[in-house]
Amino acid sequence: MLLEELTESHGVCLAYFDNDLWPRPGIYIDKIQVIFVNKSLSEDAKRRVVYHELGHLDHDSSQYERRHEQFELQANKTMIRYLMEDAMSQLDDVKDFNYIQFMKLNDLHTVADEVMVVDEYYRLVKAM
Rank of each mutant, 00 (worst) to 15 (best):
F102C: 07
Q33H: 15
I35M: 01
G55F: 11
D93E: 08
D86V: 11
A75E: 03
H68R: 10
Q101D: 15
Q101G: 12
Q90S: 09
K95P: 00
S61P: 11
D30A: 14
D92F: 12
F97V: 07
N106M: 08
H59I: 12
I29R: 03
P25G: 12
Y16R: 04
Y51S: 08
D107L: 09
D60P: 01
L105P: 02
S62V: 08
M103I: 02
P23S: 15
F36A: 14
L105I: 03
D93H: 07
M79Y: 07
D92E: 14
I27F: 09
Q63N: 09
I35K: 06
K77E: 08
D107P: 02
F97C: 00
H56Q: 14
F97N: 00
L108E: 09
D18R: 13
F17D: 03
M103P: 03
S42A: 12
V49E: 00
R47V: 06
L108W: 14
K104H: 07
D30Y: 10
M84W: 03
Q63Y: 05
S62A: 12
V50R: 11
H59E: 06
A75V: 00
N98L: 08
Y99I: 04
Y16P: 06
L54A: 04
L105G: 04
Y51E: 05
F97Q: 02
P23T: 08
Q63R: 05
V94R: 04
V37A: 04
K104R: 15
F102D: 05
D96L: 06
R24N: 06
R81F: 10
F102V: 07
H68N: 06
R48D: 01
E85D: 02
N76H: 15
S40F: 08
S89K: 12
E69W: 10
I27E: 02
D92G: 14
I27A: 10
I29H: 01
Q63D: 09
E43R: 14
G26P: 02
L108C: 14
Q70H: 10
D20H: 05
F17W: 12
Y99P: 00
L91G: 01
R24M: 07
Q33I: 00
L83E: 13
Y51A: 07
R66T: 15
L54I: 01
I27Y: 07
R24W: 12
R67W: 09
R66C: 10
H56R: 10
A45T: 09
A87K: 10
K95H: 08
A87I: 00
L105E: 08
H109S: 03
S42V: 11
F102I: 07
H56Y: 13
V34M: 03
Q74K: 11
D18S: 14
Q74F: 12
Q63E: 11
E69G: 01
A75S: 05
K31I: 06
R24L: 12
V50L: 05
N76E: 15
V34C: 01
W22H: 05
D93P: 01
Y28W: 04
H56G: 15
N38Q: 06
A45K: 14
Q70N: 02
I32K: 00
S42Q: 04
V37E: 07
R24P: 00
I32M: 05
G55C: 13
L57M: 04
F71A: 04
N19E: 12
A45L: 06
I80Q: 00
I80P: 09
F17L: 03
D86M: 04
Y16E: 14
D107R: 09
L21C: 10
N38T: 09
H68K: 06
K46H: 02
R81V: 05
E72Q: 13
H68Y: 06
K46A: 02
K104A: 07
R47Y: 11
